[in-house]
Design a protein around this nucleic acid. Structure first.
Length: 574
RNA sequence: GAUUAUGUAGCUCAGCAGGUAGAGCACAUCCCUUUUAAGGAUGGGGUCCUGGGUUCGAAUCCCAGCAUGAUCACCA
């Protein structure tokens, strides 16, 4: 008598009970032997139709067309769909047709998971199908799936509400074509990168996610607390400083696919937790790393698509190495006409004013250059482009440029106007590193809440000596977006961050019972919109009385009618 | 955080000079019995996101809240 379930859900629960009553276990424990997948049949049967004469396959019922003594079912397994032809006399042994007429036709539904065996044939309509000789229910589905239909590439009634798709990704994966594909590609991309690194002999490692000092990037962290140590801990915003400690420790190359966490805004390209691959290789510099990076990305594109050209939105992006290299100074010259290479801070501020870029007195030279680039240049780099040689203030972990101390040996890779990767010739001079951290501290005192903390242990590690090293970080979510033509980070994360679903406040059944309300009235009272005792107290008692009896009548509830005196008595106790 | 749009049946959506809700698919019953997004007929299903307000009367108008999307801000 649960009034909170929809009619369809009630029907399915009833079917479930009936199945049990005729001796069919809706959730059997034993395994079901599967010997083929839907796509194997569809691909290979036309080549040799003597194959697949004893198949056993399992999956979910996605549609049913019942034509009396014969039915057609679309079965979806992990890789695709295949049609089943189910004939009453083939799945029923002897005279008893109840398995087909009742169990199959009345008690099974779209969404149920079944296992079948039989032989493959082609129907009159030319569709490769499995003629089912045995059918077994493997799991009963109690919640109706959204029905998505498709013909000739046109999708009807797509399950398209983004909120439901992200909150109930499992449903999205079941009913929406192509969702699985994106996530399979995500895994392939990571595998391709891993292969590339392993082939060079670099070591995949794991470093702490809970960090006492959230270092390695400029961002606001999530904070948590460790009870036993009674200290605050931060979820890492980057793993850079730990990977460098490992280079100090003597590894030649280390990499990690890392979940990082940043307590900042969310939008189409940002999720509070996201995946970054960082790699550090000893005895290399950023020039070497550029070649390494472009080779890696080209390989990923080839492994994924068989070609280096990838469609993204309206653009065709060519990931064939080598990528273009442009210095930041040249990029600004190219897109604004200003040559800032010889300018001092005041002159650059003037350039900003001319370009209508707002500045404030706390902004140093580097910050302003970064602003100009971000406002006027960044979005122009659609094809993969390395922007190189960043101002020193913006890069506290990066070695100064070998030929210009105001710059650093840094590159960022831009694709489709967005940053994809970031790399340095790593700063390994402990004295310089300490000074850079102290500069950050000054920024922090000026009010920059994202300036880096000083990590003394990291400095100690550098003092023991870190070989010249180059490191690179690449945003995996963004890379996957580019490689799968996805417009939003939510489309490449299985479970993107969402606000928790609101649970309406409710008084418990016990609260209602405490007033003397019989159990069978609790659901109807909730259904009438009175979820808390407070709601009930505020109600107009006569209206409530009428509503509840109306509800009883409308739903044909098999319970005694409400008595006004009784009701008044309950309410008076609140 | 700001602006804005959306929120109606399990799903996709109509309805909005305010008069207590509609369609298609899904579901149920019956007919048909090798179909192709949906063969035919009949039927059931809804706190119209939540809470206030205006009104004789609100899914519809106003205010607030919640959720989601988009844009911007912040930001790898």
């Amino acid at each position: 008598m649960s009034l909170e379930l929809s009619e369809q859900e009630l029907f399915r629960r009833k079917s479930l009970e009936e199945l049990i009553s005729i001796g069919i276990n809706p959730y059997p424990a034993e395994l079901f032997e599967v010997n083929v997948k839907s796509t194997e049949i569809l691909e290979n049967f036309p080549k040799d139709n003597s194959q697949f004469q004893k198949v056993s396959i399992a999956g979910r019922i996605m549609s049913r067309r019942i034509m009396g003594a014969a039915s057609f079912v679309e079965l979806q397994d992990s890789v695709g769909r295949i049609q089943l032809y189910i004939k009453r006399d083939d799945i029923c042994k002897g005279e008893d047709t109840s398995f087909y007429n009742n169990a199959f036709k009345k008690m099974m539904d779209i969404g149920d998971i079944i296992g079948v065996s039989g032989y493959v044939f082609t129907t009159q309509m030319g569709e490769i199908s499995i003629h089912v000789t045995e059918l077994k229910l493997l799991s009963k589905s109690l919640k109706p799936l959204p029905i998505v239909k498709e013909k000739d590439g046109v999708v009807y009634d797509a399950f398209s509400d983004p909120e439901q798709r992200y909150r109930q990704r499992y449903v999205d994966l079941i009913v929406n074509d192509g969702v699985k594909e994106t996530f399979i590609k995500r895994t392939k991309i990571i595998q391709s990168m891993r292969e590339f690194f392993n082939s060079k002999g670099y070591l995949e490692v794991e470093t702490p996610i809970l960090q006492a000092i959230p270092g390695g990037a400029a961002a606001r962290p999530f904070i948590t607390h460790h009870n036993a140590l009674n200290i605050p801990l931060y979820l890492r915003i980057a793993n850079e400083l730990y990977l460098k400690r490992l280079i100090v420790g003597g590894f030649e190359g280390v990499y990690e696919f890392a979940k990082d966490f940043r307590n900042e805004g969310m939008d189409r390209t940002h999720n509070p937790e996201f995946t970054v691959m960082e790699i550090y290789v000893a005895y290399k510099d950023y020039k070497w790393m550029m070649e390494f990076t472009e080779q890696m990305i080209e390989k990923v594109a080839l492994d994924l698509h068989g070609k280096s050209e990838v469609k993204f939105g309206d653009n065709e992006i060519e990931f064939k190495a080598p990528f273009r290299r442009v210095t930041m100074i040249d990029a600004i010259k190219e897109h604004t006409g200003f040559d800032i290479s010889e300018m001092n801070e005041d002159e650059i501020r003037e350039v900003c004013t001319k370009l209508h870029i707002e500045t404030n007195p706390t902004m140093g030279k580097g910050k302003m250059i970064d602003e100009i680039f971000g406002e006027k240049c960044e979005h122009h780099y659609i094809q993969p482009t390395f922007i190189i040689d960043y101002p020193v203030e913006m890069s506290p972990l990066c070695k100064k440029h070998r030929s210009n101390p105001e710059l650093t040996e840094r590159f960022e890779l831009f694709v489709n106007g967005k940053e994809l990767a970031n790399a340095y010739t790593e700063l390994n001079d402990p004295i310089d590193q300490r000074e850079r951290f102290e500069d950050q501290l000054k920024l922090s005192e000026k009010g920059d809440d994202e300036a880096m903390f000083i990590d003394q242990d990291f400095l100690r590690a550098l003092e023991y000596g870190m070989p010249p090293t180059s490191g690179m970080g690449i945003g995996i979510d963004r890379l996957v977006m580019f490689m799968t033509n996805s417009n939003s980070i939510q489309d490449v994360l299985f479970f993107p961050q969402m606000r928790p679903e609101k649970k309406a406040t409710q008084s418990t059944d016990e609260d209602f019972k405490a007033l003397g309300i019989p159990e069978f009235w609790i659901q109807p009272i909730r259904k009438a919109g009175f979820n808390t005792l407070a709601n009930l107290k505020e109600a107009n008692i006569n209206k409530l009385f009428n509503d509840l009896n109306g509800l009883r009548k409308k739903n044909k509830l098999d319970i005694p009618a409400m008595n006004l005196n009784e009701l008044t008595d309950w309410i008076s106790k609140i």
